[in-house]
Design a binder for these strands. Structure first.
Length: 556
DNA sequence: GCCGTTTTCGGCCCGACTGTTTTCAGTCG
């Protein structure tokens, strides 16, 4: 079992040491340890018991001693001592834009600021402006960042609750008193972020069952609903429903307000009764005489208009994907070799993979120099000659430089099958400059795909200022592809803009942007975004088989 | 604080941008 509390302690130690001004490499040793435990699911408790923790690279004498202390005593005295010297709450301040370790330390020492709220107050009451290095511009950035953090408070990624949600659901379903259960709400619609988890369960005795599950889950009873909170503070509501009302209630709690109110009007128009018994949602839609609407599309009443005309297309599904695009390897900042990434993709049913390591300007990612691009091509040629049952294509994720140009001279770009062009620097450009910059990159004959087009990180980083509709229009003009980045933190192009892109005839690529074999399956999260954006297999370039992809995308 | 090793200590990822600098420190990806 991954000890999330321990991982957080190690991450916090790393930050607090940085703020203290300790040797940065000492700080990094702690954050490395946290990353190692998280990514390799290291069972620290077991390793300590077996005395084998020190055999793992990255855990030296000092860390083994501290982790042993933690395992044996349930707390780490080193951490307790550290947080008695310097407030733990400073780790939240360092996450505010433009607040790094130095500035965090400065405001703590000069103004005694320990929390984000105190930092906000000092921005507003003018005391921060008196500290050296904090100009109006900096204060504006800080206030914006705090506002964004506050707006994201209470929002959670689908990805962060999925494990918990499924466990809870299975627990319910395995109970003999429960006939059926399903997660509903915005989670079932696959909204980008959710504020709560809603579960609907059917049972013959909804009046009495609350008491039973109240104690099982340690929940609170409010009206007819059970309320609880996950370890990550996600509010959960469970509602028990009689079998004859179950499908209707599940449907009602899944759609957006707009959708459901339009749906209810439709029921009235047809003169139907709301609470008649349905075996499935499909049956419910049949009864009303309209086409079934899949949960992802139940955002807007417009979907119902299409359903009345039976004009909802067959949406893309996981098995339509044939190409794994935009994948990193250990040639840049990925964890696995090209072959490992390829073989895992093959296992997932893919015909071809396009390696897109970082380009030379992305120094911190070990981006490829021109020589290393060539060396990687030799490696790919060798692997293809060995024939591992999956085709490997030569791509790059090229930084879009400040002037909109790509990161290599033409002859290097020309040697590549695919160029994914992405922004990785100068996020703070003005909207018009950033828009021009990206359009300039789209205009390059070497650009194939625009990567993560808004640069957002859900709940943690705002998108950069950009006129995304203008970008989509330009992609349509130049015949370029736009990516749905399937990284659960990104998910851009957003589903709303996917709808717009489809209207404009822009083709989409669903890309995992994966840095290790274990996240290649993220690509199927991107499929959900595509479905929510009404895409069919024909709209998505990596649904093309290898020969068609080579002809229609690479050769072009 | 860890690693690798010339088993004792140097190297550990770095380049660009930003704001405030007039030559640089801090933040960021």
């Amino acid at each position: 079992m991954l000890d999330k509390k321990l991982v957080k302690i190690l991450d916090n130690i790393a930050i607090l040491l940085e703020i203290k001004g300790e040797n940065p490499f000492k700080s990094r040793a702690y954050s490395n340890a946290a990353t190692l435990i998280r990514e390799n699911q290291i069972d620290v408790f077991k390793e300590v018991q077996d005395g084998t923790l020190g055999n793992i690279k990255g855990f030296g004498e000092a860390l083994v001693k501290k982790l042993t202390d933690y395992v044996q005593n349930g707390k780490m005295s080193y951490y307790e001592k550290l947080t008695s010297e310097i407030p733990e709450s400073l780790v939240d301040i360092i996450k505010i834009n433009s607040m790094g370790p130095k500035k965090t330390k400065l405001v703590y020492e000069e103004l005694g600021i320990k929390t984000v709220n105190e930092l906000e107050d000092s921005c507003l009451n003018g005391s921060l402006a008196k500290v050296k290095g904090f100009t109006d511009k900096t204060i504006e950035i800080i206030l914006n960042s705090i506002a964004h953090k506050k707006a994201s408070k209470g929002l959670f990624l689908q990805n962060s609750v999925i494990e918990y949600a499924e466990k809870l659901l299975n627990q319910l379903k395995s109970d003999y008193d429960i006939i059926d259960a399903e997660i509903s709400g915005s989670y079932r619609r696959f909204a980008e972020t959710i504020s709560e988890l809603q579960i609907i369960a059917s049972t013959k005795n909804p009046e009495t069952i609350n008491e039973k599950f109240k104690s099982i889950f340690g929940a609170e009873l409010k009206g007819s609903q059970l309320k609880l909170t996950t370890n990550e503070n996600v509010p959960v509501t469970i509602e028990f429903i009689k079998p004859e009302e179950y499908i209707f209630k599940l449907h009602e709690s899944t759609g957006s307000d707009d959708y459901i109110s339009a749906f209810n009007n439709l029921i009235k128009e047809k003169g139907k009764k709301s609470y008649s018994y349905f075996k499935s949602e499909v049956e419910l839609y049949n009864e009303i005489g309209i086409q079934f609407v899949t949960p992802e599309l139940r955002e807007s009443s417009k979907a119902l208009e299409k359903a009345k005309q039976f004009k909802i297309p067959k949406l893309i599904g996981n098995s339509d994907l044939k190409g794994m695009l935009h994948v990193h390897s250990n040639w840049s900042d990925g964890r696995n070799t090209i072959l490992e990434m390829a073989l895992k993709s093959k296992e997932l049913g893919f015909e071809y993979i396009v390696m897109c390591d970082h380009s030379r300007s992305a120094g911190y990612t070990n981006g490829l120099s021109i020589e290393r691009v060539q060396a990687q091509h030799e490696e790919i040629n060798k692997l293809n000659n060995e024939n591992h049952g999956i085709k490997i294509l030569k791509g790059i994720e090229s930084d879009i430089l400040n002037d909109g140009s790509l990161d290599y001279p033409e002859e290097v770009l020309d040697s590549l099958d695919i160029v994914v062009a992405s922004i990785h620097s100068s996020f703070n450009m003005s909207k018009s400059k950033m828009t021009k910059r990206i359009i300039a990159a789209l205009a390059s004959p070497f650009t194939t795909i625009l990567g993560h087009p808004t640069g957002r990180l859900l709940t943690s980083r705002q998108p950069y200022e950009v006129d995304i509709r203008e970008i989509i229009d330009a992609a349509a003009d130049y015949g370029k592809i736009i990516e749905i980045n399937s990284n659960p933190y990104r998910l851009d192009l957003s589903w709303e803009n996917v709808i717009y892109a489809k209207e404009k005839g822009v083709k989409i690529a669903i890309n995992p942007d994966s840095h290790k074999t274990t996240t290649l399956e993220d690509v199927f999260i991107g499929v959900k975004v595509a479905r929510k954006g009404w895409l069919e297999a024909k709209d998505v370039v990596n649904c093309l088989d290898y020969d068609d992809f080579m002809r229609e995308v690479v050769k072009k």
